[in-house]
Design a protein around this nucleic acid. Structure first.
Length: 283
DNA sequence: AGCACCACCTGTGGGC
DNA sequence: TGCCCACAGGTGGTGC
């Protein structure tokens, strides 16, 4: 589910709500939600820890504590909901309850159970255990020049695969990638090697623009996503291609097409994103 | 390096 | 109406 704008929306809402609070003993309704360390150790370590602030890297939420870091990845259908009551009755698919000592609580719900929690000791463990295969945050840690340098190492990649690759840069997911490529008018199958310097700058600014707008509208709620207060996102009403198969392109009026690229459903306008088609073939 | 495919899970919507 | 299948916002592993 959540891509960078959704996780950032949760981070911004959650930070003022829970900074300074202290965790009581967690309830692991589905213990396998905890990736590291083992469930018992996780609960023991978290109890009594006080929240300093909340950061984010790519789609990972990093809850910095007075000792250690609580890491959350929501994968497809995870939700992190803050409530000032311990009543969990309206929480569907509740996997972990994280109560605070003041009676308020953070609920982790997740229909498909793909999401994971970690408790790790420090920055070193963070990078060795959790963020092993995660590149720089595409929104906060990449200027245009560095972006262009990284592209040089990925000449053979197709644009869609590249943007989805969290090791290249972290944060883009399926929705925002399709929206980004539509904005700059590049075909999802186009290869990095076919871009001239001006086009790589266009790609970079489209990435920034689409993420910024996603954040501005509080993320995209296709089905499951909710912010930390349970609110729906708004960006689903701004999408130009994602989920619009057969509907008219806002620029040219031709029908939006759906295909599979990098194993993911991919929406694009065959007219507006038809550039350099000769570069999309071959290996 | 890059890609195709499977696995992990559960629910929903469309087609028949 | 009801059943079955494809598909869903993500990532990790394997094997070519």
């Amino acid at each position: 589910m959540p891509e960078l704008p959704e996780v950032e929306t949760i981070r911004r809402e959650l930070d003022p709500l829970i900074t300074g609070k202290t965790f009581a003993l967690p309830l692991l309704h589905i213990p396998s939600t905890v990736e590291y360390p083992c469930p018992d150790e996780f609960s023991r370590a978290l109890k009594g820890r006080t929240i300093k602030n909340i950061a984010r890297k790519g789609k990972y939420l990093l809850i910095n504590l007075d000792r250690g870091i609580l890491v959350v990845h929501l994968r497809m259908t995870g939700n992190l909901i803050y409530s000032d009551s311990e009543n969990s009755r309206q929480q569907r698919f509740l996997r972990v309850t994280l109560p605070f000592t003041d009676g308020t609580v953070l609920f982790y719900s997740d229909m498909r159970r793909f999401g994971r929690l970690w408790y790790i000791a420090d920055e070193v463990e963070l990078n060795e255990i959790v963020l092993k295969r995660v590149g720089p945050d595409i929104y906060n840690e990449l200027d245009c020049e560095t972006f262009q340098q990284l592209l040089e190492k990925r000449e053979k990649s197709r644009l869609k695969s590249l943007l989805l690759d969290q090791k290249f840069a972290a944060g883009m997911g399926n929705i925002y990638t399709d929206e980004c490529l539509y904005r700059c008018g590049f075909h999802p199958l186009r290869r990095v090697s076919s871009l001239n310097p001006d086009e790589t700058r266009q790609l970079y600014s489209s990435v920034r623009a689409v993420l910024e707008e996603g954040i501005k509208y509080g993320g995209t709620t296709f089905r499951d996503y909710r912010s930390a207060s349970g609110a729906l996102g708004d960006f689903q009403n701004k999408l130009a291609v994602y989920g619009r198969k057969g509907e008219k392109c806002f620029k040219c009026g031709n029908p939006i097409q759906k295909t599979i690229v990098a194993g993911r459903g991919t929406y694009y306008c065959p007219h507006c994103q038809a550039n350099n088609m000769e570069e999309t073939g071959g290996q």
